[in-house]
Nucleic acid binder design. Structure first.
Length: 624
RNA sequence: GCCGUUGUGGCUUAGUCCGGUAUAGCGGCUGAUUCGUAAUCAGCAGGUCGAGGGUUCGAAUCCCUCCGACGGCUCCA
């Protein structure tokens, strides 16, 4: 709030014309004059809306102080918009003005000029040292005060019960459960429940993402917004394509929806309150926009406008959100594990009723297992968490038990007494990294609230409009997080003496050809032509030892050395990384076709893209 | 967001306690070498020591503020 206080001999005004935001007033209010008064010009600002009472209290104090100093008894409250360029809503401003008038009237003779009118005024300023004062009042916490959703607050107080469910469906107390054969689950449970935090080092993937020239921090952006170099972009692109294409094969329709939404849209406003995340917000013109943290908004708004029959159900829609934005807390951001801008496949399935929802949930549970497996993360690499309300569990015991049975290992279970999110059942697959931190990858949730909130309906067999049940599914988890998990997994492998590497289909260079001297370049070129893979040629004038070392540091799955022997025999000598031990490379002589066949077997079911960098290593810039 | 640690050429780093404008390797460039499986040799270039302010004759070094990174608290995909 901005205040301009003027000790005046007199102040008088007369309304001339109303504006669209003018308050309705009596005839008597249209004209007034005060002698010997403190005139208070006031602009109520948008920040004031975050702390109305506080702002009112502070401005009363200021006004009282001024009144006392100049020793008067009369006050004119005069709305004066031009004091600020960030005005509050007119309604709010009028409320504040009226409240000031009411409070001040208890002790003084107060007049108030009407809000939202063009007025003529005349004022005589006394001109002594204290006669003109200007004050700015801001609610204390307004700068930092963020909007915390009800869901975030509710989670703080919610009661939950933790159990371990074995494949037979039995529930065990966490304290008494024997984790001897389930070390990874123990780490996950510790992370989730007992919150034990032992390590003090950075997760290994941070160094790897830089050294492999995949991704890096971008200091010129906000924290958690990364830059991706060509190799990182390739891996992301392959993963994105894979998840999208396999979802489409499973019947999902790909859509695209906006990145930003109006904070004051009534439907969204309510949803924001139910989602446990913090948003980025942007002021643009008069609108208060926020950046989406998932694709729910766009897809649900789309569903709202659609005409849908029971024959269309279950109906799946997917978007690869590049990006989803969440303003995660600063201390939470590390490398690719948690970001503020991330890429997430977000699929929603509209189901006719709970039976169909449960059936779909089961299907998608299996699909998620398969998806992660194809990406290169198998069931031993992550731990399952299943969360539900007590009511839901009582009604669907057999089904929930079957989830544990499917993975055939104990899973962590969380049961809530009351539902404080929008879902009644959810699972996540949690990856536990090299420093024993857990983070969620795939997840599916049964949402029982949002079809109501977004007014989504379909026509049932009886011709009646019916509320569907919605499923949220992220088949792979965030794409960046998949890369993080693959890097962490590779790092753990190397601890065990296995050479670290990425799955062949994701390796930026799949085959490196390494001519021994420049005269072998021509033949190297020929071999490269015959290989159906991402092949590059290390044509640098370096020793063979050096080039081999570099190929190893890049985790290249197949390295082919070309010298006189190969030119003569027509065969190639291949170092196979996946079969090697550290310091013990496995070399095999084979034909070009045999190598082609091997790579084909390993990668043909997955998407392919061409080499993201120049074919000749000598032509490549260094990114780091 | 709060607390702690930290920030030196593109990368890794010496110097910081005890003030005197900076050390080395990798990478880059030039030249020599044409090489059979984890770093060929020599030379050259490259730094307003995270940013801003202060103390001082003088600051990478001491003080303050801000920014980034890492760890803890808390939370998710």
């Amino acid at each position: 709030m901005r205040l301009l206080l003027i000790h005046s001999d007199y102040i008088e005004y007369e309304t001339k014309k109303d504006t669209p935001i003018a308050e309705k007033i009596d005839e008597s209010f249209k004209k007034d004059r005060l002698e010997e008064a403190l005139t208070v010009f006031i602009a109520v600002e948008s920040v004031d809306e975050e702390g109305k009472d506080e702002v009112i209290k502070k401005s009363i104090e200021e006004i009282k102080k001024a009144v006392k100093q100049i020793n008067t008894n009369r006050i004119m409250l005069y709305p004066y918009a031009h004091l600020s360029s960030e005005l509050s809503s007119p309604k709010f401003a009028v409320d504040v003005l009226k409240e000031l008038e009411t409070i001040l009237s208890k002790d003084y003779e107060v007049a108030r000029a009407p809000f939202g009118w063009y007025k003529a005024f005349r004022i005589s300023c006394k001109g002594h040292p204290l006669s003109e004062l200007s004050k700015t009042i801001v609610p204390e916490k307004s700068e930092k005060d963020e909007i915390v959703s009800e869901a975030l607050k509710a989670e703080d107080v919610a009661q939950s019960y933790w159990k371990i469910m074995t494949p037979d469906g039995e529930l065990h107390d966490v304290e008494s459960f024997d984790f001897k054969n389930h070390k990874n689950l123990k780490k996950f449970v510790d992370y989730e429940i007992t919150k034990s935090r032992k390590v003090e080092e950075a997760p290994p993937h941070v160094e790897l993402m830089k050294r492999l020239e995949l991704a890096d921090y971008e200091p010129a952006s906000d924290s958690g917004n990364m830059r991706y170099y060509p190799k990182g972009r390739l891996i992301k692109s392959l993963l994105e394509t894979y998840v999208l294409e396999s979802s489409v094969e499973n019947g999902a329709m790909e859509v695209e929806t906006p990145l930003m939404y109006d904070m004051n849209h009534p439907t969204l406003k309510k949803y924001l309150d139910r989602f446990p995340a913090r948003q980025y917000s942007i002021e643009s013109d008069k609108r208060h926009l926020f950046l989406r943290f998932a694709a729910c908004f766009g897809q649900f708004l789309m569903n709202h406008d659609m005409t849908i029959s029971y024959k269309n159900l279950p109906m799946k829609m997917i978007e690869m959100t590049r990006y989803s934005f969440r303003r995660e807390q600063r201390g939470e951001l590390v490398g690719l594990r948690r970001l503020r801008a991330f890429t997430m496949p977000d699929m929603h399935t509209m189901c006719s009723d709970m039976d169909q929802a449960i059936e779909q949930f089961g299907d998608q549970y299996n699909t998620c297992i398969e998806t992660l497996d194809n990406i290169g993360l198998n069931i031993d690499d992550y731990e399952v968490a299943i969360r539900f309300t007590r009511d839901f569990y009582d009604q669907n015991r057999t089904f929930i038990n079957s989830l544990a049975e499917t993975v055939n290992k104990p899973v962590l279970v969380e049961m809530w007494d009351t539902r404080f999110f929008y879902f009644v059942l959810k699972f996540e697959f949690n990856f536990v990294d090299a420093i024993e931190k857990a983070s969620a990858l795939s997840t599916v949730q049964i949402d029982v609230e949002n079809s109501e909130r977004y007014d989504i309906k379909y026509t049932n067999t009886e011709g009646e409009l019916t509320r569907p049940i919605m499923l949220h599914c992220c088949p792979s988890g965030a794409i960046e997080r998949c890369i993080y998990a693959l890097l962490e997994k590779a790092s753990m492998d190397s601890e065990k003496g296995k050479p670290p590497m990425l799955p062949v289909w994701l390796s930026p260079t799949q085959v490196r050809i390494l001519p021994i001297s420049t005269r072998h370049l021509g033949y190297a070129e020929e071999v490269a032509e015959q290989l159906n893979a991402r092949v590059d040629i290390d044509d640098r004038e370096d020793s063979v030892g050096k080039k081999i070392r570099d190929a190893g540091r890049e985790w290249i799955p197949y390295v082919v050395v070309i010298g006189d022997k190969e030119v003569e025999s027509g065969n190639i000598n291949v170092t196979i990384r996946s079969e090697s031990q550290q310091n013990k490379p496995v070399k095999k002589e084979m034909s070009v076709n045999e190598l082609n066949k091997k790579i084909h077997e390993e990668t043909s079911s997955m998407p392919f893209r061409n080499l993201p960098l120049p074919k000749y290593v000598s032509q490549r810039p260094k990114f780091i």
